[in-house]
Amino acid sequence: MNNQVQKELKIVFFTNWYPNKKNPVEGIFVQEIIKAVSKSHSVLVIHNAGVDPTLDRPWKLELQENSPLTRGIKTYRFRFRPSPIPKTSLLISIWYFLQAFRKVVQIDGRPDILHAQVYPAGFLAAIVGKLSRIPVIITEHSSAFARDLLSRSNLFTVRIAYRLAKVVLPVSSALQDAIIQKGLQGNFQIIPNVVDDSVFYYLVKKKTDNILRFLYVGLLDRSENKGLKILFQALEKLAETDQNWQLDIVGDGPGREYYQRMVAESPIKKCVYFHGLQTKPEIAGFFGKADLFVLPSIKETFSVVTAEALATGTPVLATKCGGPEDFINENNGILVEAGDAQALYEGLLKITKALDGFDHSLIAEEAYQRFSPEVIRDELTKIYDGVLN
């Protein structure tokens, strides 16, 4: 903990990803970063809610403060009409955001730092910061770099944003490598995501039976990136052994019925349970009962849920998908190759034999030292001070 008295700064966060009525969990990891910073600094959020053709004016800024979605953080929802002129949407969005930002400054005062989350917001923030002479920092979370999903226009805006930003903060070394491989330049420094330690913390696990409980938490979509199909294939191999196990799947999405049908037609149908979308405290409860958390993804920039598992003292079997390589080690889990059902199966065999050897309290303590709000807040404060001084 940093015991030095620090000046309270005024930070405006700008993000396209943020909890909203349509998707209450969108960008929840962004909100955790902002919540951590708010413990030492004055913060507010401008959420770019995007294009809204129903608006009766060019742009609109709505204050949303006392809402479960904002968790006590002053939040403006920014929306704007689409451009009526072809190929001018980027310029129009810059102009509208500049006006909206100036309105926020009139109401709340000039910020010391404009801290954007993810490159689309980073581009707008970088332009407005340059025009307003306010330093800009960008935290990068996007998997688009590693998954080769960036268009030429995306790369153009990212290149400008990173050059104008004082610091760019990828959340993992794999993400930083993927960014650099695209030929992008910036003042990079890795700062991981935050784990909410008021919810995810160590509790002694009490076994009441001989069932090995595996846990998966995540989005259930039809893409291959989350690796669920590969996990099921690995578990089908495990079902041929004499191990007594079950897999709990927490999460929802457009692919849920697809995966439920897949399981129903497989030999593991009696061992897999779908629990749907759960609250954070409920997810923490699942971690408390789990012997092992499994992350079978193909590509991840960080994987907050894996860090949350560690914070509860739960060992992890993860693929080498990007983020986990920074923090999974022999003290807390095993890494296997991504996209390989046989490797995942062999990893399951290996780690289930080693479960009794893990020090769960040590796993949780190491996670706290890396991901707690206090630690990340102090690291960001050092960066803010460095930019300003």
Rank of each mutant, 00 (worst) to 15 (best):
T139K: 06
L90P: 00
L131H: 07
A100D: 03
P82I: 12
L90V: 13
E140Y: 04
V136Y: 05
A121L: 01
A100G: 12
A125R: 03
Q117G: 00
T88P: 01
P82Y: 10
Q106P: 05
I92Q: 12
V118F: 05
R79I: 05
H115C: 04
Y119D: 03
A126I: 05
R81F: 12
S83K: 08
H141Y: 11
V118C: 02
F97V: 00
V128I: 14
P82H: 11
S132L: 14
I137E: 02
P120R: 03
S93R: 12
R110A: 14
S142L: 02
S142C: 10
A125L: 02
L91I: 10
Q99S: 10
K87R: 13
I94T: 01
Y119P: 00
P135S: 07
S89F: 09
D108N: 15
G122H: 01
I138T: 06
S83P: 06
R81L: 14
I138Q: 06
P111S: 13
P82Q: 11
K87L: 14
R79A: 11
L91P: 00
S142G: 01
S93P: 00
W95V: 08
G109R: 15
L131I: 14
I92R: 12
P135E: 07
L98N: 10
I137N: 04
I94M: 07
I138S: 03
P84K: 11
I138P: 04
I134Y: 06
P111I: 13
A116N: 02
R102C: 10
A121C: 01
L91Y: 08
T88S: 11
S142H: 07
H115S: 03
I85L: 15
V118G: 00
R110Y: 14
R77V: 13
G129P: 08
V104D: 09
T75H: 09
D108M: 14
R81V: 09
G129W: 04
E140C: 05
Y119N: 00
A126H: 05
R102G: 08
F123S: 03
G122V: 01
